[in-house]
C-alpha cells in the first residue's frame, strides 16, 4: 500500500510540475509591455480621484481632438469628483445637434450633463479622411480591450502608458512607412498616431507635475476608470461577499463535523 502511494504521489508531483510549466508558458511577444503599479490594483484597489481627474483633463485637452468615448456621459464625471456646476460647464462647452423640434427642424444647443461625450468626427469616414486613412479607436473600453491575456497579464493602463511613452527615433535601417511613427511598444512598431503627449503638453488645474510620464500615467488611470467605472464597488462588494462566505463555510463545516461525529 505504501509503495503504491509513493508512486502515485510522484506521478501527481510530476503532473503538477508540468502543469505549472504550462501555465507559466507565455507566448513570445514581439514587444514586452512594462508592468507599472496602479492604485486600483489588488483586493483593496481604488482609483486615485485626483489622478483620474487630471487624466480627464489630458483626454479633454489632447485625446478628444481625434478619439471619441461613446460610452461616457458628462454626468459620469460626478463619480470622479467633479461638482454639478463643473459638469454643467464642461457639457455646455460643446454644441450638440438635437431635434427635430416642433417645426421639424434639427437645431444646435449647448451640451447637457446627460449627453454622451461629443465625438470629434461625425462618422468613421470623416475620422479616416482626417487621419490619413487611419481610424482613431473609441477610448471608452480601450483599457479593457488592450489588457494582456490571462490572470497574470498586464493591465490596460500598462499598455496605454507604454504606448504614450514609447515614441522613439527608429533604429538605423528600420523601414518606416509614409505618415507612420515609430513606437517601441506598438506591435510592428509602426503606429499611425503621431506622438500625442510631451513634457508640459497639458497644464493641470491642480498644478501637479506635467512631464510626459505624469501625463501618460494620469490619462491611463482615467481610461481605466472609464473602462470600468464600477471597479471600486466591485472590490468592496467582493470583500463583503468573501467575508460572508467565510462565515457561511465555517458554520457549515462546524455543523458537518457535529452531525457526522455520530458516524465516525
Amino acid at each position: 500500500m505504501k509503495k503504491r502511494s509513493i508512486l502515485l504521489n510522484g506521478m501527481a508531483l510530476v503532473t503538477a510540475v508540468v502543469a505549472v510549466l504550462f501555465i507559466a508558458a507565455a507566448p513570445h511577444e514581439e514587444v514586452d509591455i512594462p508592468k507599472e503599479t496602479w492604485s486600483f490594483q489588488g483586493f483593496f484597489g481604488k482609483f486615485d480621484q485626483a489622478q483620474v481627474k487630471r487624466g480627464f483633463q489630458v483626454y479633454k485637452d489632447v485625446c478628444s481632438a481625434c478619439h471619441a468615448m461613446n460610452l461616457m456621459s458628462y454626468r459620469n464625471l460626478a463619480q470622479i469628483g467633479f461638482s454639478e456646476d463643473e459638469i454643467k460647464e464642461i457639457a455646455a462647452s460643446v454644441q450638440v445637434t438635437d431635434g427635430p423640434n416642433d417645426a421639424g427642424d434639427m437645431f444646435e444647443r449647448a451640451g447637457k450633463p446627460s449627453d454622451t461625450f461629443k465625438p470629434p468626427f461625425a462618422n468613421e469616414q470623416a475620422a479616416r479622411a482626417a487621419n490619413n486613412g487611419a481610424l482613431p479607436p473609441d477610448l471608452s473600453l480601450i483599457a479593457r480591450s488592450r489588457a494582456g491575456k490571462g490572470f497574470a497579464g498586464y493591465e490596460g493602463a500598462d499598455y496605454i502608458h507604454a504606448i504614450l511613452t514609447g515614441y522613439k527615433e527608429p533604429p538605423a535601417g528600420f523601414q518606416l512607412q509614409d505618415g507612420m511613427n515609430y513606437n517601441e511598444y506598438f506591435r510592428g512598431h509602426q503606429i499611425a498616431m503621431p506622438q500625442p503627449l510631451s513634457d508640459g503638453a497639458v497644464t493641470f488645474a491642480d498644478g501637479a507635475p506635467n512631464t510626459l510620464e505624469d501625463e501618460s500615467r494620469d490619462v491611463a488611470a482615467f481610461l481605466s476608470w472609464a473602462g470600468e467605472p464600477n471597479l471600486e464597488a466591485r472590490h468592496l462588494t467582493g470583500l463583503k461577499a468573501v467575508l460572508f462566505l467565510v462565515v457561511f463555510t465555517l458554520l457549515f463545516y462546524a455543523v458537518k463535523r457535529k452531525v457526522w461525529s455520530k458516524i465516525h
Binding site: G148, G153, R234, H235, A241, L245, V246, T249, F252
Partner: peptide, 29 residues
C-alpha cells in the same frame, strides 16, 4: 450539510473570480 460545506468552499472560489479577476478567464478582444 456536507454539500452545503462544499458549496461554501466552491462559492469562495467563484467569488474570487467574479470580484477580483472577472475578465481573466475571457478574452480582451
Amino acid at each position: 450539510v456536507k454539500d452545503m460545506y462544499g458549496l461554501g468552499v466552491f462559492m469562495l472560489f467563484y467569488a474570487f473570480w467574479v470580484f477580483f479577476a472577472p475578465v481573466a478567464l475571457g478574452d480582451p478582444d
